[in-house]
């Protein structure tokens, strides 16, 4: 196997076996077809500086995408319109949960087989999507999370947040007996089954850890692959110091309720 790095649409086939060109061309064709079955959901709230960059990156990889403007107060909507970017526009601010859920409803209704959510602030690199998809197929997972903490490369977040994430991981392990290395990661690939679940039920704020528990408790499988995340290039984190207490209490309770609400299916 020889690693071939190419620009543009070929970027997604980072590993091509060049000893079988005919086969690889066929597989590229198949991959292209497969890619059309993936929708990249990019939520955007006040991301006027970074949104174009991330969209161009996703476009260059050849994925279908949709940006969901969550009633931004800055020029995000204008930028989306001006640059002819595929977008959905929330009439009111729905928060990250409501926004992502809209994306899953859209993906499901449009018939996409997979949906992947990535942040609109440049933290997640879209080039990992193909790896996530391959891993999903290999391991028969229903959801794949891009995790910062497997190889511990790239931006590792602040000390306190890392401790918080460890605590959430621990809580999820106690309740579901499964280990999720990065339960707060918003870089996730899901299949249609999970899309359907999320269409009907998705929390409004800080949804990631809670939905992971709900998915596990419903009997679906979650896998994670190592990704390198960057420090956010633009905008600021939705979790500031004042909100961290609310976050801690809300997410802990939400995880407990999610574990209680859904009985594990054998």
């Amino acid at each position: 196997m020889i690693k071939v790095r190419q620009s543009g649409i070929m970027n997604c086939f980072r590993i091509i076996n060049i000893t079988d060109m005919g086969g690889s061309l066929r597989s590229i064709g198949e991959q292209l077809k497969k890619m059309k079955k993936i929708l990249v959901i990019i939520p955007a709230f006040n991301e006027e500086n970074g949104i174009i960059g991330i969209v161009k990156e996703v476009e260059s990889l050849g994925f279908d995408y949709v940006v969901i403007n969550d009633h931004s107060k800055d020029q995000t909507l204008d930028i989306l319109k001006r640059n002819k970017i595929e977008y959905l526009n929330n009439p009111i601010n729905l928060g990250i949960g409501g926004t992502i859920q809209t994306g899953y409803i859209y993906a499901f209704e449009k018939g996409y087989e997979y949906a992947v959510q990535i942040d609109g602030d440049g933290q997640h690199k879209p080039e990992y999507i193909v790896e996530m998809l391959n891993y999903m197929k290999e391991s028969q997972c229903d959801m794949v999370i891009g995790s910062r903490f497997i190889t511990k490369e790239g931006f590792q977040s602040t000390y306190l947040r890392r401790k918080g994430i460890k605590y959430l991981s621990f809580l999820i392990r106690i309740l579901t007996k499964r280990h999720i290395t990065d339960p707060t990661s918003g870089f996730r690939l899901v299949n249609r089954k999970i899309m359907e679940c999320f269409m009907h039920d998705y929390p409004r704020d800080y949804p990631e850890p809670e939905t992971a528990v709900a998915v596990l408790k419903k009997g679906y499988k979650i896998g994670d692959i190592p990704v390198v995340m960057l420090e956010r290039e633009y905008g600021k984190s939705s979790i500031n110091f004042q909100r961290s207490v609310y976050y801690f209490v809300k997410v802990s309770l939400a995880i407990l309720f999610a574990a209680w609400s859904y009985r594990e299916e054998e």
């Binding site: 969901i68 959905l88 526009n89 929330n90 009439p91 009111i92 729905l94 409501g98 859920q101 809209t102 409803i105 859209y106 209704e109 409004r204």
Partner: peptide, 11 residues
């Protein structure tokens, strides 16, 4: 939330 999401998709 449901109404807003419907509006978003219809728009």
């Amino acid at each position: 939330k449901l109404l807003a999401q419907k509006v978003t998709l219809l728009e």
